[in-house]
């Protein structure tokens, strides 16, 4: 603490954020300092952040579950409001944690109202643009094992520490407040349903390639090679009730994780829990429909 105010672990946050960059020789030294064991390789990076879990706010909080769009615009606006030129990818988790650390570094030389203003900006950054998705992403990175697991664990704890200092919030981030829920294909038609399943903000759940692979293997279904929507469409085409049931189980697990964070994050975590719960309920309901009706969902062109 300085001047009676809290001090964020700027160096640690920056070091952790740098692991979201492609591995470089310098990561070996950092991994040693942080006790993370073997540093990740390029293959680890590609698998974790390019194939499984994309570390962008727009992917996790955008209605389409894709890069860019209004979420990235809004995050870029935050950079500008904070007096900075937004980088090319302003909503990248590394950039956001880096910005958070930068704000705290800026605060070091300030006092009084100026310091409070910077602290408020830092708090808004986490609550609005990070907490709504980063915990779930980090939890899944840790769950996936491998060389990023240790890093994900420390980063998760570092963010927990920051969240604890801020206390839970009753307000929802704007991204979440504006995000549509998972549509019921029986009401709104099948178009876009599969894509919506893959948009984390609609289901409260990140459906990774790893999860889809597991679903296929556990149920003896054929796994097509391709993008996730392509994979999922073909899984549904083989056995929609079974796959929907499996997806509902994924969402149940996600809901439980969100619930665990409710006392820490408040409404943001409860939102995730509600979304995952509602999605699970919808999928179970759908899975009880006849096979023919469900396969129609999978075949509806998007």
């Amino acid at each position: 603490m300085t001047n009676g105010l809290r001090e964020a672990p700027v160096e640690l946050l920056r070091a952790l954020a740098s692991f979201l960059e492609p591995p470089s020789p310098q990561h070996a030294g950092l991994a040693r300092v942080l006790g993370l064991g073997s540093p990740p390789t390029g293959a680890d990076f590609a698998d974790t952040f390019l194939f499984q879990l994309h570390p962008y706010a727009s992917v996790h909080m955008g209605a389409d579950g894709m890069l860019g769009g209004p979420v990235r615009e809004r995050v870029g606006g935050f950079w500008r409001a904070a007096g900075r030129v937004p980088p090319r990818e302003p909503d990248h988790l590394g950039a956001l944690i880096g910005l958070y650390a930068g704000l705290w570094a800026e605060r070091e030389g300030l006092s009084g109202a100026e310091a409070e203003l910077v602290e408020a900006a830092a708090a808004a950054l986490l609550r609005e643009h990070v907490f709504g998705w980063a915990f779930e992403l980090l939890a899944l990175v840790a769950e996936g094992g491998g060389r990023y697991a240790g890093w994900a664990h420390v980063t998760y704890e570092a963010l927990v520490e920051e969240a604890r200092a801020l206390g839970p919030s009753d307000a929802l981030p704007v991204h979440l407040a504006e995000a549509p829920a998972l549509p019921d294909p029986r009401v709104e038609g099948g178009a876009g349903f599969v894509s919506a399943l893959l948009a984390p903000v609609r289901t409260g759940t990140i459906l990774t390639r790893r999860a889809l692979t597991r679903i296929a293997r556990e149920r003896g279904l054929g796994l097509r090679v391709g993008e996730r929507r392509w994979v999922l469409e073909h899984l549904l085409g083989q056995s929609a009730p079974e796959v929907l049931g499996a997806l509902a189980e994924e969402m149940d697990r996600a809901a439980a994780r969100h619930l665990e964070r409710a006392s820490l994050l408040g409404e943001t975590a409860r939102f995730g829990e509600r979304r995952a719960g509602a999605a699970s309920e919808l999928l179970r309901s759908l899975s009880s429909e006849g096979e023919a009706a469900l396969s129609e969902i999978a075949r509806t062109p998007e």
Binding site: P9, E11, G29, E161
Partner: peptide, 15 residues
Amino acid sequence: MDLNELNRRVSAARS
């Protein structure tokens, strides 16, 4: 996990 200690270690590594 002592985050402050990790922070200190990173600072030391930088120096």
